[in-house]
């Protein structure tokens, strides 16, 4: 996958896939296109809103919930999303993703991002193969070393896999602001395509070193925990959006939080996770319209800090 989509191509693909189109934002703004960012190492455009699966897709053999999650994924694709991120760490999430992709026949649509999460430095290919089998795909677009676990041997193998064409991009991940010093050192020394780290309107440590370094080194950035695991909604949802939010392109809190993240020039995409179709629609709204400028971003951070 990996082509730059115009609105016409996008709609044609949807129609061909037989998917119903419920893109109010798109329809409300004729000519609007999904906001994309180029992956620095290739120039391939990536929609700025991806999808995480942490906690949300680990539903075991519960067919009722598998069906609900399939609808969430369907909505994600309908709104122009492509990048889905998972990990062997997330219980049955890989299996459930495979079932959902089967149900939607969407293996060709997804930009598959997964992780290597094992202390066994020699098990990189084996774990990649196991995850691919669960997803039902031939290769992952992106494979990442999860939380720097045994990162040296895994990264060496991933480099070889990329050279062999077994993956298209490689990267490393961290979350919750952990091990940023080690993370920066690896970013400085290794030929990474992607890094994944925690960045949101409250957790902004990455702005100090990692985000500038990513720009300098030409590394794409995936922002995880964009809602701080849901706690941003619990804290702020009852508060009113500021009057100037619409000027910054934000019609609800989901758009407010997500647009703050993806408007940072170093960020390539954010990966919110949800179990509800309605929430997915709200999240995907952040992929359309205008993004806040630097002054508005400061205003957004100040507003949230002041609540």
């Amino acid at each position: 996958m990996a082509t730059q989509w115009t609105r016409r191509q996008f709609l044609a693909t949807l129609a061909a896939a037989g998917l119903s189109v419920r893109m109010s934002a798109l329809m409300a703004a004729p000519g609007a296109e999904a906001i994309t960012r180029p992956i620095p190492s290739s120039g391939e455009p990536l929609p700025v809103i991806g999808m995480g699966t942490w906690r949300t897709f680990n539903v075991g053999g519960d067919q009722h919930l598998v069906s609900e999650r399939t609808q969430v994924l369907k909505t994600f694709f309908e709104w122009g999303g492509t990048l889905v991120d998972s990990s062997p760490m997330y219980g049955s999430a890989d299996d459930v993703m495979g079932e959902a992709l089967d149900a939607l026949n969407a293996h060709e649509r997804v930009f598959g991002a997964n992780k290597i999460w094992t202390r066994d430095g020699g098990a990189t290919r084996e774990q990649d193969r196991a995850s691919r089998r669960k997803w039902g795909i031939d290769r992952f677009d992106l494979q990442q070393v999860h939380n720097l676990l045994a990162w040296e041997p895994h990264l060496e193998t991933l480099k070889q896999m990329k050279a062999d064409g077994d993956i298209r991009y490689l990267g490393i991940t961290t979350s919750h602001g952990r091990r940023h010093r080690d993370f920066a050192r690896i970013m400085e020394q290794e030929p990474l395509d992607f890094v994944q780290l925690t960045y949101n309107v409250l957790d902004r440590e990455a702005e100090q070193r990692l985000l500038p370094l990513a720009r300098e080194r030409g590394i794409a950035v995936i922002a995880n925990r964009p809602f701080q695991g849901g706690s941003l909604f619990r804290r702020y949802q009852s508060e009113p959006l500021p009057g100037w939010a619409a000027e910054a392109g934000c019609g609800n809190w989901a758009e407010f939080f997500l647009k703050f993240i993806v408007s940072h020039p170093a960020v390539t995409c954010a990966i919110p996770a949800t179990t509800k179709v309605k929430h997915m629609e709200e999240n995907m709204g952040a992929q359309y319209g205008n993004l806040p400028d630097e002054q508005q971003r400061r205003q957004m951070a100040d507003y949230v800090a002041g609540l």
Binding site: R55, L65, A93, T275
Partner: peptide
């Protein structure tokens, strides 16, 4: 360390 929610 918890990879699922109360609903599941």
């Amino acid at each position: 360390f918890l990879m699922f929610g109360p609903e599941v």
